[in-house]
Design a protein around this nucleic acid. Structure first.
Length: 393
DNA sequence: AATAATCTCAACCGCGGGAGT
DNA sequence: TACTCCCGCGGTTGAGATTAT
């Protein structure tokens, strides 16, 4: 099965683009559209391969690209989306208007990943790094292994659901009746976030520690402890250099909080920025502000019993978690939420950071999974058996 | 001021998958 | 069904910029 030679062709230029080349490419696409990338270079008079042209266009020349420093909100979204989607940069990019997957990928690799790591959070799993020793306790290893398997099942179901959502999203966006338009947030991901957030309030899966921390911080009054969710994220996030603290009069609303943090961020990058970043996440549930750009904030809105702008099969009504009309209709989200709410003891240890719940077993998370195994099974069943017309199908 | 070390990010590479034949 | 073409994706590279010594 032969592969097209592309850039291996002799005589094709590689490396940095010159302004002249850019101009040629822009002029051609402006006039004719890009059409077939393979034939474009010849037609446009460029000694480049089509692939190189496509890359130059999508990553640099496209007019709808926003360049420059990532905003705090964008950083939040990237971290949250990465926690959900992993290294699926194109998927992440669809939720960050005007940013390219390449740019997001670079930004993650050069900034966010390092900052998370520096703060003691594994940038791959979004879990505190100390979790790495999770199987080191022999006495608990079997139990933990079982729970890990269970979590892997959950994660697998989650990913599958997410993939379905993305497919559905694509179908919708292809529709001329798409009421949201290309600039609107991707509600499929919002919906996914809704699902996960429906879990997160009381019992977040371990794979979503960032969201968990976010949620915990949200539920806890900010200030008093001198850092709200920051202290939750670990003492790991505390830095001797830290200048940011949410004192008793800490801002409660995103606009104020983000503004104040951004001021600080401009001055000093690094751990404080991350702290500020995640700290603000705890404030986001006031989704009236910045909602369009923050799917997770959207998701949080559901928990505040707010109608979301959904569409088609997954209507706003279907997401209204205590809507009387739908009280018995059993939409997926409702059933999901109800399942979680009726799951008995969802108590989750928050006091001992992420590794210890004080019971000597070194991890409330595992106890949680053990105690609620049946509930997780129910959730998995529900995910796997979601109806064909549901957003998860 | 010179050099080394580190960082940034545009661009490249190779693979997988969809579409067409 | 097998094959080819093309596109898009994620990982990686390396030149230039910046910072540290």
């Amino acid at each position: 099965m032969g592969r097209s030679p592309c850039c291996e062709k002799v005589g094709l230029k590689k490396g940095p683009w010159t302004p002249e080349e850019d101009h040629k490419l822009l002029a051609y696409i402006d006039q004719h559209g890009h059409g077939s990338w393979r034939s474009l270079p010849t037609k446009a008079g460029l000694e480049r391969c089509g692939k190189s042209c496509r890359l130059r266009w999508t990553n640099y020349l496209r007019p709808d690209i926003k360049r420059g420093k990532f905003s705090l909100e964008e950083e939040q979204n990237i971290i949250q989306l990465h926690a959900l989607l992993g290294n699926r940069w194109s998927a992440i990019a669809t939720h960050l208007p005007k940013r390219t997957d390449n740019e997001i990928k670079n930004y993650w690799n050069t900034h966010l990943k390092k900052r998370l790591a520096k703060s003691g959070i594994d940038p791959v799993t979004h879990k505190p790094k100390t979790d790495a020793g999770i199987l080191s306790n022999d006495g608990q290893s079997k139990k933990k292994s079982t729970n890990l398997s269970h979590m892997a099942q959950w994660e697998s179901a989650r990913l599958e659901a997410e993939a379905r959502l993305v497919r559905q999203s694509k179908l919708r966006s292809a529709s001329p009746n798409d009421r949201l338009g290309s600039q609107a947030p991707n509600f499929s991901l919002v919906a996914l976030a809704t699902l996960i957030n429906a879990v997160a309030p009381s019992k977040p899966p371990r794979c979503l520690d960032v969201l968990k921390d976010w949620k915990v911080g949200w539920d806890k009054p900010i200030g008093g402890g001198g850092g709200g969710s920051m202290s939750r994220l670990g003492g790991d996030l505390e830095s001797p250099r830290s200048k940011i603290s949410f004192s008793g009069n800490a801002p409660r609303f995103p606009t104020t909080a983000i503004g104040s943090c951004e001021d600080e961020i401009v001055k000093e990058e690094g751990e404080e920025e991350l702290k500020c970043l995640i700290g603000n996440s705890t404030l986001l549930p006031d989704f009236n502000v910045g909602m369009e750009n923050n799917p997770m904030a959207f998701a949080s809105g559901v928990r505040e019993k707010t109608i979301l702008p959904m569409e088609d099969a997954w209507t706003p009504e279907s997401l209204e978690t205590d809507n009387d009309v739908n009280a018995n209709s059993g939409t997926f989200v409702e059933r999901y939420t109800e399942l979680l709410n009726n799951s008995g003891d969802w108590s989750y240890s928050e006091g001992g950071g992420d590794q210890s719940d004080g019971d000597g077993n070194g991890g409330g998370d595992f106890d949680f999974y053990e105690n609620n195994k049946n509930d997780w099974n129910d959730i998995l069943d529900l995910v796997n058996s979601s109806p064909a017309n549901s957003p998860l199908s």
